[in-house]
Amino acid sequence: MRVIFRCDPMLAAHLPRPVPARGALPDWLRAMPATAYSAIHARDIRTLKQCPPVVDAMTYGFMILLPCDVIVDQGKFSWDWNIPEPATGNHPRAPLSFHTPGQLAGSPFAKPGQAALKFNSFWTIEVEDGWSLYATHPVNREDLPFRLVTGLVDSDRFSDGGINFPAIWKEPEFSGVLGKGTPVAQCFAVPRAAPQLEFEVFDEKRQAAYAQTVADVLSTPGVYRKRFRARRGPSKGE
């Protein structure tokens, strides 16, 4: 899968490039212990850090990064980002814009008087024919003070305009800096063709395989990682 990013020529030297998600893992994941004591089990057990599906989800695809520091003061957002005038017409210069509260009416995101953020994209994104771009909140990043609204864009066709990423600000009392390079959206290409769903019951062979697999997983640490997890190499250009 080739993913092509393009930007305005005047801004190329000022923009953080999208990065493979594996290069944007949070500090808390790196710092958390591999095991922790469980009073229920009366012994140490493995933490999420040793759960390959959790980690693999967090390293899948690529991240769109905040292009500059954004100062937040209890719902007020400001920035000091001195960039050249873009050479392209109708091109944004601000890292953020907003959706009015009325655009959220009737949704679970709606809060009285609260607008939604819109992280402006400074990169166009092109994927291969027949594929779409799935953009969602950085996986398992509950530590971020916003929640991205998930969207799906047919980026094999829509590749000449930037994709903006709406988000709900979760912490109205927050004061601080949302730093340059903060992941704001995790993206990956998905096939547009609908899957064909098929349903079966276990035959004897599948029953035996199920019972043995579950027994192995429960009795031996690392079974999934050693026997089933696919090898993941670096992407081209990484």
Rank of each mutant, 00 (worst) to 15 (best):
R2L: 10
F5G: 02
D8W: 13
H14N: 15
L15C: 07
L15E: 09
P16K: 11
A21E: 02
L29R: 10
A34N: 03
T35G: 05
A39G: 07
I45D: 04
K49S: 04
T59C: 14
L66R: 00
C68Q: 09
D69A: 12
D69Q: 11
V70R: 04
I71C: 01
Q74I: 04
Q74G: 09
S78Y: 08
W79I: 01
D80W: 04
N82A: 14
E85S: 13
P86Q: 10
P95I: 05
F98N: 01
T100D: 15
T100W: 12
Q103L: 14
L104F: 08
A116M: 05
T124H: 09
D129C: 02
W131D: 06
Y134W: 11
R141W: 00
E142I: 07
L144D: 03
P145A: 05
T150M: 08
G151Y: 06
D156Q: 03
D160I: 03
G162C: 13
P166T: 04
I168W: 02
P172F: 13
E173D: 15
E173H: 12
G179A: 14
K180G: 09
C187R: 13
R192D: 14
A193Q: 07
A193M: 08
A194Q: 15
Q196I: 09
L197Y: 14
F199Q: 07
D203H: 03
D203R: 04
D203Q: 04
E204S: 09
E204F: 02
R206L: 05
R206I: 03
A209C: 00
A209N: 04
A209G: 02
Y210K: 06
A211K: 06
Q212V: 07
V214I: 08
D216T: 02
L218W: 06
S219I: 00
S219K: 06
G222R: 01
F228Y: 14
P234C: 09
